[in-house]
Design a protein around this nucleic acid. Structure first.
Lengths: 199, 199
DNA sequence: AGCGTCCCGTGACAGTGTTATGGAACGCTA
DNA sequence: TAGCGTTCCATAACACTGTCACGGGACGCT
């Protein structure tokens, strides 16, 4: 009779927590299975039993990171004015990325070479962006925005993701007021989607 | 008497060419010094003599990639209408990235773990984006755009880079018309920077 | 011709992810 | 309770990586 799988849940969360700490503190390259296992008081094969390998471990961090992002975005208080809410969501998106820059690299930067998110993992990523879609849908509904077939969501996600990526990778000129520039850019982009026939 | 350094220039370009081929064909993780040296008919120490190590080699690819990007952007025929030219530059930017996706990862994605561009290398990156700054400056000059202190350039670079990054990393929903969505988003973003008091 | 320097091939070291082997702990059945 | 079957994970090896000490041979200059 096959004995049911009773994975050591405590060890599992200990590995995940420590992996997150290592990435947060020293970046994705500092996450080595040997070091991780030693810190967690186990050996590398435990990672293979619990996660199937390093990519499997990273996958858990990936969905966890998107879960946190989604929570932060859903926690943003909405004003009911779509153009304003869109900017608020963008600011919260940046703050979420800055709160854990290396995790953002895991989500979007391809920071871990062997890791590619599967379809089930990417569905988590899109779920985290649901508040963005809702605000846009509300704006289109009330005639504030002009959109066609989800184009606007991609454009808004693009500018938010682009500016955050440039900032995190140090590509923005030093000394600039990133927060102000960021918000100003978001407002301009939002303005471009306004329906100027109404209002 | 110290003999002048006579680096093997042929070997140097052979290594760089092959490194570019490897990255283009199989991604940044496929670029190993041993394989590169074997393909070029030399040994790994040659890379250390010529480039100082793997990061030094990647640095050359980095500036080369930005050189190509700059060349493509400068080759875009300008119409003289800033709002239109801005979109044209954005489209050329995307085409340049799609022409060699893995090189784009070297430029912005942090695809090679040990590599961080130094100040001199990042100056090359900003030089490649000069056409963008020129178009914006021309638009501000003629009163078409409303900008303050380079904010608009960052915003435009952000959306372009963000959409290209999302596309290259497979984060956009499958089956969508990326080219059309991309151009539509660029037009909307540009519209947000227009000076509505004039014109 | 000879000297001094530099280029780079050989080989080693420490690190990585991965996996075959095997022992020990555990759940279930008899 | 004894024993079986399975699962978990510790040990150790393999192939691979970037890096560097060593040293031979080629080269430019006097």
């Amino acid at each position: 009779m096959p004995r049911p799988r009773t994975h050591d849940e405590a060890l599992r969360v200990r590995l995940l927590d420590r992996a997150g700490e290592l990435i947060a503190a020293e970046g994705a390259t500092a996450l080595s299975l040997r070091r991780l296992a030693a810190d967690a008081g186990t050996s590398t094969t435990a990672v293979y039993s619990l996660f199937g390998g390093k990519p499997g471990l990273v996958r858990e961090l990936y969905v966890e990171a998107f879960h946190r992002l989604g929570t932060r975005l859903r926690a943003v208080p909405m004003t009911g004015r779509p153009a304003e809410d869109l900017v608020l969501l963008g600011v919260a998106y940046r703050e979420s990325a800055l709160a854990d820059p290396h995790l953002y690299g895991v989500m979007f930067g391809g920071a871990i070479p062997g890791f590619e998110p599967d379809d089930e993992a990417t569905s988590h990523s899109r779920a985290a962006l649901a508040p963005l879609l809702e605000v846009i849908a509300a704006g289109v509904e009330t005639g504030v925005f002009l959109d066609s077939g989800g184009t606007m969501a991609v454009g808004c996600w693009g500018i938010v993701h682009g500016l955050v990526s440039l900032e995190l990778l140090g590509n923005l000129p030093p000394g600039m007021d990133v927060a102000a520039t960021y918000e100003r850019s978001l407002r301009a982009n939002t303005a471009g989607w306004l329906n100027r026939a109404s209002g």
